[in-house]
């Protein structure tokens, strides 16, 4: 033990004692800070000004409900993922995909979402914007099946259309350049007893949505009603509501054929 001279031991001890004191100060500070109560000044909500452009590649931003999310697709891609892949292949450029879809989202929730500062910033740098919304407004998790004949639908649709208008205005406010594709509704219940009446409601719904869409430049209404009209069950997931992998591919192919550069 010759290398451990008394001096080394003594200095290690002194270092240890001072560290001990330092940690004790930290502990005291932590307790003090935890019970210090209200700060004098609450942190201000920052204005996100920096616009980060994605120069190298293309940016795809997807907004909406479970269709945007890709619910029902075993691969988890949904139509958004397939479209992004398609763009990557066609342009040979890297694609940054930001999927902001939320399961079960309705138009008034999307209206709140597009007003968030960060979502606005994402929209600013987007080259392509994909939107699906309205399915949950109309079907309300199956509730819509029961009372679709009542006059209630008209009221719901009116609210939905004004929300849709607001959402498009918000998108255009943030980004005047990007192409926006708004995906219309299909009828997942077309083969059920009241499928025909339901189809009528959905056709009407889609028509009015397309009317709203037409008022905005570079926003394209993409119909999907016809895609699912025949053999609907081949394209639906086991919940008989969301598309399956094949169904999403159908939607994606239609959107991809509309893309221009």
């Amino acid at each position: 033990m010759s290398f451990l001279s008394n001096n080394i031991i003594r200095s290690i001890t002194i270092i240890a004692v001072s560290l001990c004191l330092l940690w004790l100060i930290g502990l005291g500070w932590a307790v003090g800070e935890y019970y210090a109560g209200k700060p004098k000044k609450a942190p201000q909500t920052a204005k996100v000004a920096t616009k980060v452009a994605n120069k190298k590649g293309l940016t795809v931003v997807a907004l909406g409900d479970s269709l945007t999310r890709g619910t029902g697709d075993e691969a988890g891609k949904g139509y958004v993922g397939v479209v992004a892949d398609e763009i990557k292949e066609k342009t040979k450029r890297p694609v940054q995909l930001t999927n902001l879809g939320i399961n079960g989202q309705r138009s008034e929730q999307l209206k709140m979402q597009v007003q968030q500062a960060e979502v606005g910033r994402q929209l600013q740098k987007a080259d392509v914007i994909l939107v699906t919304i309205g399915g949950n407004d109309l079907f309300r998790g199956g509730q819509g099946l029961i009372d679709f004949q009542s006059g209630d639908i008209a009221g719901i649709e009116k609210k939905y259309l004004s929300n849709l208008k607001f959402i498009f205005e918000q998108i255009r406010k943030n980004n005047k350049q990007a192409n926006v594709f708004f995906i219309g509704l299909y009828n997942p219940f077309i083969q059920m007893d009241q499928g025909k009446e339901m189809s009528k409601v959905i056709r009407h719904w889609n028509y009015d949505s397309a009317e709203v869409t037409a008022a905005f430049p570079k926003i394209v209404f993409v119909p999907t009603f016809d895609l699912f009209e025949l053999k609907v069950n081949d394209y639906l997931y086991s919940d008989k509501f969301h598309p399956n992998k094949k169904g999403y591919r159908l939607i994606a192919e239609r959107v991809a054929s509309l893309l221009t550069w």
């Binding site: 940690w23 004790l24 100060i25 930290g26 502990l27 005291g28 500070w29 700060p39 609450a42």
Partner: peptide, 21 residues
């Protein structure tokens, strides 16, 4: 309502204190 901003070094010192305890 009681959220406050701290510099990371301060926060670290507190963490060290708690870990030490």
């Amino acid at each position: 309502s009681q959220v406050k901003l701290l510099s990371l070094w301060k926060f670290l010192l507190m963490d060290f204190g708690l870990v030490w305890f």
